[in-house]
Structure formats: structure tokens, C-alpha cells
Design a binder for these strands. Structure first.
Lengths: 222, 222
DNA sequence: TTATAAACAGACCGGTTGTCCTGTTTTGTC
DNA sequence: GACAAAACAGGACAACCGGTCTGTTTATAA
């Protein structure tokens, strides 16, 4: 009976972040078309008016997710680790290993955020397409630049940097597609092993011998 | 004035095929969720009753497309050519080349049918997932079996067949993802070149020297 | 022919979607 | 405090979705 009416506090940045958080996971788990505004509203605990105030259309929300979250995810899980590694090849290897280990631990493969949205949206709208293509391009360029620097420092053979970068990104994307479909991350390690054969440098690849059939558990609902 | 009322002829197989034709291209171009029953009805010139008679639910239609069309597409464009090639490596190379050439000629990249549907549907429904995973598995096995046969005939070095198959499929899938997003098929050739470096066999790879930046034109509407 | 089922046509419905709109509250500025 | 703009709430709405329903036409078989 007593008027418990909480005082409302305007927190535009926090609310915007909350919406982006929810949209990011929803778009990755269920996809763009399968995630409704209503779903996002209830999941984020946000009213329709607030949502519409920050993101007037669903497309604007998706573009924000792509520009601010997907790009950041690629930067965090790929570009930064590769740049921090001793060589480009070692960086690629480390990321493959890290992602495979993480997927096996969490027991569920949600797929690559960039790849997931790229498939659903790149043909649907030119704005989506160019935004996603830019992330792909930056990803590849980070790897090729690093490899070129390695070569100038005499740390790598004569591999074509652009080709190696393209293959690394493609192999990762494709492996994640298969891992998501099979719900089995082992294909990531298979691809990494195949990728390391193309390394003409001597040692560095002693590990990764036996490994087979590690099927993931605990799919549980999305 | 004259009753032009055409005699109706029942052609269940033809009508079913017509619906599958339309659904196949619609699901690949716009995706599953973005393709409505109404779209398919008008595109195929089929009444709602007829559509529902052959495919009681949208899920049933999608499963039919996957089982009958997507699997056939993988068989036709990948498995058969690889089996017909002299070696597994040569078959993989030939398919990459053929697809790249075809995409460049038609000037538009629609993506891999299997990969497109796999991303949108494999997390949405277990039935979809297992159907798609089975196609991926058959694809990979065809390549690995062929490579194993090559090795027993002394036509290839000691590459692990499963790893090579996984890498080939992953590289192709990922390259098609990037090609679709960038609307540029040249990444397919980059990946192929990177893939051929892992061939320890002597000659066979003299070509594929220069090649750069062949951006596709004529995107036109879907 | 007659019966029987399959093949097809088209209207219909409840639920959902994305968006908009009108109000109310908070915040910043003078 | 006065006032304007931003931040938020919540309902309304038309369009559309997938599915169902009833009815008619065609093929099949006895």
C-alpha cells in the first residue's frame, strides 16, 4: 500500500550497454531474425520506449552490435593475441589452441560471432555487408602484417603473407562452422594440425600428436 | 465470356519439385527465417493448400531441402569431382579453381548452401543440426578416404587424411564465407594457394603465381 | 458408374513482429 | 524556480507470420 515508487534514475550509457549485452548474445545464439525486440526487452529488463530511444530500428541495433561488439570480439580473441605472440604462425597456433580449449571446457559451441552474423546479414543489407567485410579485412590484415614483419626480421620463410592470412582466417571460420554444426570442437585441432604442416620452419610443432573424438556435452537450451 | 477454365491436372511430383526449387534458392539467398511461406507460394505459383499438402510445416520443407538439395549440391560440386580426380589433392585443387571461376563469371557470391543453412539452423533445432552435420561428415570422409587410397597407391606423402580433409573443408567453407561477405571470390584462390604449400609432393603446383584483386561486379538485387 | 483417397484451392485465424505514438519523469541550463 | 531537451514508460497498431480449416477437383480402383 505504501508508495514504494522507486525514484527513477536516468542512466543512458548503462542502459545502452545493457541492451547491447543482451543483443550481442541473442544475435549469436539465435540469430538476428530469430531475436525479436520483445525478447530483447524482457531479457534486458528494458521498456520498449527506452529501447527505441537508443536504437530506433532493429537494423540500427544490429549495426551497433557489429561495430562495437563483434569487432571488439575479433580484436580481443584474435588480433591482440596474434600481435602479442612471438611470430604470426605462433600466434595463430595459440589462438586455435586457446579457442579449442575454451570450447571443450564450456561444452558448447556457439560459433564465431562474426561468421554467424556474416552469413545471415551480408546478403540481406549492404550496410551490414560492408560493416562485416571490414572486420574480416582487418582481421586478415593484422595477420599478414605480422607475418611480413616476421619475415623482415628473418623469423619466417617465404610464405606469402596475404595467402597465409587468408588461409588462417578461412580455416578458423570454417572449422568453427563445423564445430558448431557437429557440436564438437575437435575439428579445430584437426585444422590446426593441417595448417602447421604448411610451416616450412623446422621445429615448433612437436605436439599435437594423438587426439581423437572428444565430443562435447551439455548442449542445454539456448 | 467463354469459360476458359483450364482443366486442372494433378502433378504431385512436379509440384513438389517446383516448391523445392524455389525453397532451395530462397533459403540460400535470404535464409530460412527471412523466407516466408507467402514468398514461396507466390514465387512458385503454388496455392497454400498445395504447399501445405506436400510440406505440412516449414520445418518439414527445410529438412527436405537439406536432405534432398543441399546434400546433392555437396555431392555434385565436391564429392563427385574429388572422387573422379587423379588424387585427393588434385581434386580439391580442381574444385577450388572451378568454384572460383564460376563465381567470378556469374559476378555474385551467394555462399555455400550447406554453410549458409548450417549457421542459421544448427543451433535452432536438433533435427536440423544432425542433418547438416551428416552432410559435413560425408563431405570430409569422401576426401579423407580418397587421400588414404592415394597413399596406399603410393601417390601421396604421409599427410594425415582426416586432418587434410578437415582443413580442406574448413578452408573452403571459411573462404566462401569471406567471399560472400566481401562479394569477392579472390580469397578462394588465396586459400587454395596457401593450401597447396602444405603439399609435400614435388611438382604439380607450378601455376597460381600472380593474381590479385579481382573484385566482382553486378551484385544486383536478390 | 461409383466409392475413395489423393491433390489442390483459398479463405481464415490467433499470435507475433517491428515500429510508432502519446505521455511522464529526469536532467541540464539559465 | 523556469524551461527545454533528453530519458524513459507503456500502450496501440497495421502488417505479417505459420498453420488450420473447409471445400472442390482430379486420379484410382473396383
Amino acid at each position: 500500500m505504501a508508495r514504494l515508487a522507486r525514484k527513477r534514475i536516468n542512466d543512458p550509457e548503462g542502459m545502452r550497454k545493457k541492451v547491447l549485452d543482451v543483443a550481442e548474445v541473442a544475435f549469436q545464439a539465435r540469430g538476428y531474425h530469430a531475436s525479436s525486440f520483445g525478447d530483447l526487452m524482457t531479457a534486458a529488463g528494458v521498456s520498449g520506449g527506452a529501447l527505441h530511444h537508443h536504437f530506433p530500428t532493429k537494423k540500427a541495433l544490429a549495426l551497433a552490435v557489429i561495430d562495437e561488439r563483434v569487432a571488439a570480439a575479433v580484436e580481443e580473441t584474435w588480433i591482440a593475441p596474434v600481435l602479442a605472440a612471438s611470430t604470426a604462425r605462433e600466434g595463430v597456433r595459440a589462438v586455435f589452441e586457446a579457442v579449442a580449449a575454451e570450447l571443450e571446457q564450456q561444452g558448447f559451441v556457439r560459433g564465431c560471432p562474426l561468421n554467424n552474423l556474416a552469413h545471415e546479414l551480408s546478403l540481406a543489407d549492404p550496410d551490414f555487408r560492408v560493416a562485416l567485410a571490414g572486420i574480416f579485412a582487418g582481421w586478415r590484415r593484422a595477420i599478414s602484417d605480422k607475418l611480413r614483419a616476421d619475415q623482415q626480421a628473418g623469423r619466417d620463410g617465404g610464405t606469402d603473407p596475404e595467402r597465409f592470412a587468408a588461409l588462417a582466417v578461412a580455416a578458423y571460420s570454417g572449422a568453427m562452422s563445423m564445430a558448431k554444426t557437429a557440436q564438437d570442437a575437435s575439428v579445430l585441432r584437426d585444422c590446426l594440425a593441417g595448417l602447421e604442416l604448411s610451416a616450412l620452419s623446422p621445429s615448433q610443432g612437436g605436439l599435437a600428436a594423438k587426439r581423437r573424438r572428444r565430443v562435447l556435452l551439455r548442449p542445454r537450451t539456448l
